[in-house]
């Protein structure tokens, strides 16, 4: 028992990044998922109309499954994401944590950053949000921060651009 306590005291752990994203991101993720579920509804409706004389039972079963899955997803996923999604940008590194069921932490040194992009899709504009993407020379390395308040995003881009400008080398 004592040994176990000692071990946990010795183990260094990575803490989550400092900042949460905007609470409006909850709505953004929900709407984005809703769009997906509605798209999934389309083939069902087509099937419903094409298969006019069959029994209604299979349609009801599939419809019910759709409803339950969509409801659970729309309620659980945004909350979960909001708890996970965090970001932090220091003088030397960018650090993010994303995902819900499957989660990912990404860390890139500022000295290796190649571009800093900010983007607002239609749904993001609806909620006055923006995302910031920081890319490195690796195709596997882009760091995307979703659901930032638009003003925060602008500030972050400005900060990062200034910091990246101070580093030298071709960052590969």
């Amino acid at each position: 028992m004592v040994k176990g306590v000692n071990m946990t005291a010795d183990v260094v752990r990575l803490r989550p990044p400092m900042h949460r994203v905007s609470p409006r991101a909850l709505w953004y993720w929900a709407v984005r998922a809703a769009v997906l579920w509605i798209v999934l509804l389309v083939p069902q409706v087509i099937w419903w109309f094409a298969d006019g004389d069959g029994s209604a039972l299979p349609h009801l079963v599939v419809g019910l499954i759709w409803l339950v899955l969509a409801a659970v997803h729309l309620v659980v996923m945004p909350q979960w994401r909001y708890r996970v999604h965090r970001w932090e940008a220091t003088d030397t590194a960018v650090y993010t944590q994303t995902g819900w069921l499957s989660q990912e932490r990404r860390i890139a040194p500022i000295s290796r950053v190649q571009t800093v992009d900010s983007e607002r899709g239609p749904i993001e504009q609806l909620f006055k949000l923006a995302n910031v993407t920081v890319t490195t020379a690796s195709a596997a390395g882009p760091i995307k921060i979703d659901g930032l308040a638009a003003a925060d995003a602008d500030q972050l881009v400005a900060d990062l651009t200034a910091r990246v400008g101070q580093t030298t080398g071709d960052a590969t």
């Binding site: 499957s102 860390i107 596997a140 390395g141």
Partner: peptide, 9 residues
């Protein structure tokens, strides 16, 4: 030039 740490459920 960076680390990704992925964890599934």
């Amino acid at each position: 030039i960076g680390w990704n740490m992925r964890t599934s459920f």
